[in-house]
């Protein structure tokens, strides 16, 4: 606790406050976490691996992509590279957060950034912007958000064997819908939409050419090269 000890709340009240803050976020985590659990179970991941993934990876998008690629029988290198690229944005998020946390020291900062997600990033950005930097609250929020995510994916994995078919629940649409969300969040200008569209066309062409397994990573590299090329070219 730092200088503003009078401000910080303790005990039960602190837990209630954190719970109130993560309530809207939990509304999203529970259905998507359960969808992840069911899909992981369908992709053949064990219960332990599914829950461990939620504990260790703790990134909805990367986890859904990974199980989608597992299910499609993609090569491991392709899965690793794809999830790395998809999660690169967390590098920027963590970097944006650390100026607020300088007093915390590297160990606590790392613990904080490990639990950072798109949603908790938005929440903490708002809190820190208001000057609300209470460390206890911050870690409580993160820990509770991750607990919700881990429990929902565990529940999903358990329920998975009882779900005979993913289609009536549209669970097979979780991944495409998630990509739409991610794309819209990151593509803030025309060039990025152009690059995304071009990459999509390349991916379609590669799948049509019979290169299913490598289409994702190849389209990413070709698309990124195209985007960088257009950017350099238009700047001149």
């Amino acid at each position: 606790m730092d200088g503003n000890a009078a401000q910080s709340v303790q005990g039960r009240e602190a837990v209630f406050q954190a719970a109130r803050k993560i309530a809207p976020l939990a509304m999203g985590y529970i259905p998507v976490g359960m969808a992840f659990g069911v899909l992981a179970q369908k992709a053949g991941l064990s219960l332990v691996n599914t829950v461990l993934m939620s504990v260790l990876v703790y990134a909805g998008s990367a986890q859904l992509i990974a199980v989608g690629m597992f299910a499609a029988g993609m090569p491991p290198l392709s899965i690793v590279l794809t999830t790395f690229v998809v999660n690169l944005r967390h590098l920027l998020m963590s970097a944006a957060m650390t100026p607020h946390l300088r007093k915390w020291g590297p160990f606590r900062m790392a613990a904080f950034c490990y639990e950072l997600t798109d949603e908790t990033f938005a929440l903490h950005s708002m809190r820190f912007g208001r000057g609300d930097r209470d460390m206890r609250q911050t870690f409580l929020i993160n820990a509770m958000a991750q607990t919700v995510w881990v429990l929902s994916s565990w529940a999903g994995a358990l329920a998975g064997s009882g779900v005979p078919d993913v289609e009536p629940l549209a669970l097979d649409y979780a991944l495409p819908a998630m990509f739409i969300g991610l794309l819209a969040m990151q593509a803030e200008n025309g060039l990025k939409w152009l690059t995304a569209g071009f990459t999509g066309l390349v991916a379609i062409a590669l799948v049509q050419a019979g290169l299913d397994q490598w289409s994702v990573i190849m389209a990413t590299v070709i698309g990124a090269t195209f985007g960088a090329g257009v950017e350099t070219w238009t700047r001149k």
Partner: peptide, 27 residues
């Protein structure tokens, strides 16, 4: 289903909202 999902995603920037809408529409 991707069309309204895109519209919502661009308008609200809400990741989970988009997933929920997309899955809801397909279901």
């Amino acid at each position: 289903a991707a069309i309204p999902a895109f519209a919502l995603a661009i308008k609200t920037r809400s990741f989970f909202g988009t997933v929920a809408l997309g899955m809801g529409l397909v279901a």
